[in-house]
Design a protein around this nucleic acid. Structure first.
Lengths: 151, 151
DNA sequence: TTTACTGCAAAGGGTTTGCAACATG
DNA sequence: CATGTTGCAAACCCTTTGCAGTAAA
């Protein structure tokens, strides 16, 4: 099931094609930034990673890639939204440690046993409520190691 | 542990006092709006529920109440943030069904067994990463019954 | 050549903030 | 009285959008 890192680009191309969008060099460069990154990134971080990307185009391309299911957007109370490769692309189901002080986000995973127990529960709830579910988010909110000592 | 609905006000007063803030009539009215509401509310909804509340004061008071641990803020990709009573006040540990089309939010709960299995996992992860954890969020993203049929 | 994409600059809009009047202890 | 709160209006700033030029099918 997990997708090898290498064909994230071809996956992206396919998914874009399914939405009648092109996999342009700018979009490729954008996806490349996320492949290289180990954690969700804000827009300034994306542009810092590749200065040839224009702000408005990045926002537009992230929206397009999100609609195509290539990119996932994470919104916290931090100023900037953060973006990462969608799980279907990264092949890496995970959760987030979100620092409520500095807004940084790290990934972590759960034991498969707990993960599937939760998934079953979620499916039951969704069905009972007539809710069509795409995804869940299961994140830890707190203070990262740095911020905990900083204070 | 769960707090009876009735003393949400006194809890709020205590927590505000701990932060050297007053429990003014406006703040009381604001908390009252949340006590009466069954789901997280946006700012326009709060003001619609009590027109005597001024926008900027509500934002400021929500920030104060959030800092005091009385109110919890939920940010989604919807335009407005949503607010609800903090679990310590409502005494009601729950999760959210978030509609990615209309932004509406409903509450739901999990079986205590699954809930505590997840809590244990989270605690372990937090410890290993040096993360000081206050809370977790475990929400379902999808389409509410209305939006699913609407399309 | 037709349609999608890009980038600049400007607009949009939820949230925050300055400040003067007010209430509270 | 001294300090915290309120409300209006203006400022903020992340994000979106208009538009003219450019690349791709």
């Amino acid at each position: 099931m997990p997708t090898a890192g290498g064909d994230a680009h071809s996956q992206a191309e396919e998914r874009l094609a399914a939405v009648d969008a092109r996999y342009t060099s700018k979009r490729k460069a954008l996806v490349e930034v996320f492949i290289r990154s180990k954690r969700p990134m804000t827009l300034p971080e994306v542009i810092a990673a590749n200065a040839s990307l224009a702000q408005s185009s990045v926002y537009r391309n992230l929206a397009t890639l999100e609609a195509a299911g290539v990119i996932h957007r994470i919104v916290t109370s931090d100023d900037h939204a953060r973006f990462e490769l969608a799980e279907a692309i990264s092949g890496h189901h995970h959760h987030h440690l979100i620092c409520s002080m500095c807004g940084s986000i790290e990934d972590f995973t759960l034991h498969p046993r707990v993960e599937s127990a939760v998934a079953r529960e979620f499916a039951g709830v969704a069905e009972r409520r007539g809710f069509t579910t795409n995804a869940h988010q299961m994140d830890l909110i707190g203070r990262c190691a740095e911020c905990a000592t900083a204070e």
